[in-house]
Computed example of a mutant assay.
Amino acid sequence: MTETTNNTVTDERADLLQTLAKHRHFLRFTTRDLTDEQAGQRTTASELCLGGLIKHVTSTERGWANFIEQGTSAMPDFDSVTEADYARRADDFRMLPGETLEDVLAAYEEVANRTDELVAKLPDLNASHPLPKAPWFEPDAQWSARRVLLHIIAETAQHAGHADIIRESLDGQKSMG
């Protein structure tokens, strides 16, 4: 059972939220003191840039939070994804004209707050939903809210590491070492 004291989560959820907060911090920290142009600059052979990584993590976290709340209907089956969907998804990895780092970070903060509130209020971390059909998921697999949160943490940590490499390539600044 979840206990709260003065709006503070005091069970396993606190560990999950603290871990997620740490990795979110490292991801955001990679953008300190950057211009919008720098946040959109590619520094490696990949298409990744710092602003795009944060956009991607924001979109991914939003999608998984929707999955916790709404179940499978929040995510399309792989078979129904169109070329236009792929093109929109690719835009998550780059800064588009008119986008600012400030706006990207604000959107991430909004999604993070929503996820944190959701985790704090979930009646049961074991509640699960079937995953949508996709080649990267086991057939007929189900993920609990706990498993989804662990996935969000892993995604955030992985991309914080990518962001650290991009930032160091950009101007020599390090975030984690």
Rank of each mutant, 00 (worst) to 15 (best):
K121G: 05
E117A: 15
M95N: 04
L34K: 02
I153F: 03
T43N: 00
R167P: 08
D85A: 05
E69L: 12
G40R: 03
L20S: 04
D92F: 09
G52A: 06
E61T: 14
H159S: 05
L53E: 02
A87M: 04
S46Y: 06
L48T: 03
G177S: 13
D92A: 10
V104Q: 02
W143N: 05
L50S: 00
C49R: 05
R62P: 07
D103E: 15
E102R: 15
F137D: 01
I68F: 02
M1L: 12
G71R: 03
A141H: 12
V111Q: 06
D171N: 11
A107E: 13
I54P: 00
A106Q: 09
E168N: 10
S59Y: 12
W136L: 08
Q142R: 14
F137K: 06
V119R: 02
E83T: 14
H129P: 01
E12G: 09
A154I: 09
M1R: 10
M1C: 07
G40F: 02
S128E: 04
E47Y: 13
S46Q: 08
G98K: 01
E12W: 10
D77W: 07
H162P: 00
S59R: 13
T4N: 13
H159I: 04
A87N: 14
H129Q: 00
G172W: 01
E83C: 06
T35G: 07
N6F: 15
F67S: 08
W64D: 04
I166R: 08
A163C: 05
L48W: 12
T4E: 12
L125T: 01
A160W: 00
S175L: 08
L96Q: 14
P130W: 01
S80I: 12
R88V: 14
P97T: 07
D15N: 13
T60R: 11
V57S: 03
L125K: 00
D36K: 08
F67M: 06
P97W: 00
D11Y: 03
